[in-house]
């Protein structure tokens, strides 16, 4: 048996609930069947690409030791590659203090308006978009489970806005964090939305493509759920905020819908 070479250059980056791994593939001289990927010695997946995303991790950061074994066309296995220690990120929903939230960060959108499949009513229920005031509005009535985009004919093929208002007793002493979790999104057109804080354009939030199932299914957590949840957490500089009412705006002027799990502003 000839052992194929092990890969080199294994490195990774942590995200919320995921770790993304990349490495330098072996040369074409080795006909690869697949790369077997290990975390702390346990097989977590196989891929033909020099790239792997470890999914389904927790919301609290944990450092794991990753390594990769090359399996060649004959079934021969290389030695383990040099390991890489990578931690997933700790979510601000764990490390931070909630200031204002809508929905619960639980992998389900069922507590939100029109969930699980009322999207056809969106144009009549939210003709001017969503405008939600924390402490006064209620999720089940006032925060649509979907934020449509201009690619959605059922929502009028136009841009859509969601406004989230909340009070701060004073300008925060440290930066805040925005957590925007999705249970799912369109599979190829999740695209992005423009985020504005108190009238200042903060920038674009780019969403991960999902499975185009969250418009009719509310739960991403049951075994075999077809949904592809994703997690956006963004630091927001304290200078953007003020005492009294603050206004966050999501303006979906690209692509198709996203399906919320929950949205919240967290203090550090």
């Amino acid at each position: 048996m000839r052992r194929p070479p092990a890969i080199t250059g294994l490195h990774g980056a942590g995200g919320i609930r995921i770790v993304t791994l990349d490495w330098k593939p072996v040369s074409w001289a080795t006909v690869v069947d697949h790369y077997a990927v290990y975390a702390d010695g346990a097989l977590i997946g196989k891929t033909v690409y020099p790239h792997f995303v470890h999914r389904g991790l927790g919301f609290t950061g944990v450092t794991r030791s990753y390594s990769v074994v090359t399996v060649d066309a004959a079934g021969n296995r290389s030695a383990q590659s040099s390991p890489a220690a990578v931690a997933n990120l700790t979510s601000v929903t764990i490390s931070g203090t909630p200031i204002a939230t809508v929905g619960t960060f639980d992998g389900k959108g069922s507590e939100l308006a029109l969930s699980p499949k009322g999207y056809a009513e969106y144009p009549t229920r939210f003709p001017a978009g969503v405008d939600y005031t924390y402490g006064t509005s209620t999720p089940a009535a006032d925060w649509s489970y979907l934020l449509p985009g201009p690619a959605d004919k059922w929502a009028g093929t136009k841009n859509h806005r969601a406004t989230f208002r909340f009070d701060l007793p004073a300008v925060p002493e440290q930066d805040l964090d925005l957590a925007l979790w999705l249970i799912d999104s369109h599979a190829s057109l999740a695209a992005s939305a423009l985020l504005t804080v108190n009238g200042t354009e903060f920038g674009r939030l780019t969403f991960a493509n999902g499975a185009t199932k969250g418009s009719t299914i509310a739960d991403s957590t049951y075994p075999g759920s077809p949904l592809k949840p994703s997690y956006l957490e963004v630091p927001l500089p304290k200078a953007l905020f003020r005492a009294g009412q603050n206004v966050l705006e999501l303006f979906k002027d690209q692509g198709s819908w996203i399906a919320y799990d929950a949205l919240g502003v967290f203090g550090r």
Binding site: V31, V32, H34, V48, P50, H51
Partner: peptide
Amino acid sequence: YGVPPELFVHRRAVAYR
């Protein structure tokens, strides 16, 4: 389906094989 070309060639290699 969103696989970048520098990765997709590895898929093509095993499929052709």
